[in-house]
Design a protein around this nucleic acid. Structure first.
Length: 239
DNA sequence: GCGACAG
DNA sequence: ATCTTGTCGC
């Protein structure tokens, strides 16, 4: 019955690959009905000090399409899995999921800073975590992991297909003029056209969509040990 | 064997 | 990702 082994994070390289190969088939790459009436969006990011195994993760929840901050959840955690291209999920996944667990509300879709299916085994961080969270998810990477693409138009909103093998695995999107494009790919429960549209509607004059920008700012404030939220200490629930 | 390589 | 200083351009 249970063809899927229990998911584990303390794995070897080989086990991690096996988990990815097992989970990739469970991804849903079509638009989900939940995307018909979007009210909220979340963005998540990680930050840590060089050479340290103490990671900080933050998730911001914003209303959509207004993009006003609704909630912020954060967490710190020890990480031992090294950075290996293609296995980023096993390094950043646990802290990110811990932060999501503290979020009071469930977002209608999530933006991750990493690849969705534009990945060697078709399941990057955004796809993997979208699947585990069972939420529509989109991968927004700042650089390429796999695939090739042609020139991207100069205007905001222009995009080129990201091709890997004989498949389109994503889109290279110009979210801001005179700035390098970002790599958008399906994570889970969403089709590519909608993913591109949503990412663009989350941009507010910056290269990165607002949920990811805010999560990035939040996680860095956190690491710098600053008091950020007006109402609560993001790490208060840890104590 | 060599180059590529999300964060 | 992080480190690191100044600097060029809109």
């Amino acid at each position: 019955m249970n063809a899927t082994p229990l998911h584990r994070w303390d794995v070897t390289y080989r086990e991690a690959v096996a988990i990815q190969e097992d989970l990739r088939g469970k991804l849903i790459l079509r638009d989900d009905g939940a995307l018909d009436s979007i009210r909220t969006v979340a963005g998540a990011d990680i930050s840590y000090e060089k050479g340290s195994d103490l990671f900080f993760a933050a998730v911001v929840l914003m209303d959509f399409p207004g993009l006003g901050l609704l909630e912020e959840a954060a967490c710190s955690a020890r990480v031992s899995f090294p950075y290996i291209p293609g296995l980023l999920t096993f390094r950043e996944g646990p802290p990110l999921l811990a932060a999501f667990a503290k979020l009071g509300q469930t977002p209608d879709f999530v933006l991750f800073d990493g690849q969705g299916i534009a990945h060697p085994r078709g399941i990057g961080l955004a796809a993997h975590l979208g699947l585990l969270l069972d939420l529509p998810a989109i991968g927004c990477a700042k650089s390429r992991l796999v695939g090739s693409y042609g020139p991207v138009g100069e205007k905001r909103g222009s995009h080129a297909a990201l091709i890997c093998g004989d498949r389109q695995v994503g889109a290279v999107v110009r979210t801001r003029e005179r700035t390098r494009p970002i790599f958008v790919s399906q994570g889970h429960r969403i089709a590519l056209p909608k993913a591109v549209t949503l990412v663009l509607s989350c941009c507010r004059g910056y290269r990165l969509p607002e949920p990811l920008r805010q999560a990035h700012l939040a996680v860095n404030r956190l690491r710098m040990g600053q008091v950020s939220a007006p109402h609560s200490d993001p790490l208060a629930k840890n104590r």
